[in-house]
Design a protein around this nucleic acid. Sequence first.
DNA 1: AAGATGATCAACCGCTCAGGC
DNA 2: TGCCTGAGCGGTTGATCATCT
Length: 243
Amino acid sequence: MEVQELELRSGPWTREEDRALMNYIAVNGEGKWNSLARRAGLRRTGKSCRLRWLNYLRPDVRRGNITPEEQLLILELHSRWGNRWSKIAQYFPGRTDNEIKNYWRTRVQRHAKQLECDAGSQQFRDVVRYLWMPRLLERIGGGGSRTSAAAEFGIATPAITETEAKPSPENSTAAASSSSVDSLSAQFSPQPPVSGGLMHPGGELWPESLPKAFDFPDLEQMVWPAGEDLWSADDIWLLQQQF
DNA sequence: AAGATGATCAACCGCTCAGGC
DNA sequence: TGCCTGAGCGGTTGATCATCT
C-alpha cells in the first residue's frame, strides 16, 4: 500500500518493534521478510527486519568482547578468504558477519593505520602472520616463549585450500591436528577440513627465515607488552622503521 | 566542565544471485 | 528468455559513547 510505504520507518529499533518482530517469528517462523514485516505490523522493510533479527534479536546471538581465540581465528580465516565475512562468520557460532566485519575494520585496520600501511598490503599481512598471531597464541597458551609459540604455530599447522575448506559436518572428522590454530578451529563449527604437512596456515610453506622486514636484532630484544593491548607505542615505532 | 576527537557498532544501501513464473 | 521477488553479502554511514585536551 502506498500510504504504508510512505510511513516506512528507519533508524534505531524500538522495544515495541523488537517485541513485535520476536513474537511474530516465534509463532510463524522466519523467512519471506517483506510479507513478514507487513503481517507483523511493522513499518519496516523486510530487509531491515531480517537484519535486526539476524544481527540482534536471534536467541543464539552472542555478545561481548572478541576473545583472543576468536581474534586468532579471525586473522587466520581472513588471511585465507579476505573480506568474505559471512564465510568467516560460519566458524563463530553466535557471532554475526556484521560483528566480525566491525571488529576487522575497527581493531585490525586501526593497527594497519598505526603502522602507516594498507591492511591489505603484504607488509601488514606479514605483521599479522609473524607477529600478531604468535602473540595471540602466547596469550591463549597462558604465557611461554614467543619463539616456542611461533614454532608450534608454524610447524604443525596444516594447509587448507579454498576448494578443500567447505565447512560441512562430514568434513569435521578430518580436523585432527595438534596445532593451536587447528585446535581452536576444532572448538567451533562448522570445522574446516585439513590436509597434513608442514605448512603455514596461509597455505604456503613456512619460510626458512622470517621476511626481511623483520630480520633485525631489535625485534629479538624487544620487550613485549604484558598489558591488555598487544601493541605498545615502541612496537609501532620499531615496525614503522622497517617500512 | 565542556568541547574535540576517536572508537564502536547498529543500521542502511547498493549490488548480486537464485528461484519461480 | 526475461522479469520479478526474496535473500544474502560487503561496503558505508551515522549515532552514541568514551577518552582526551
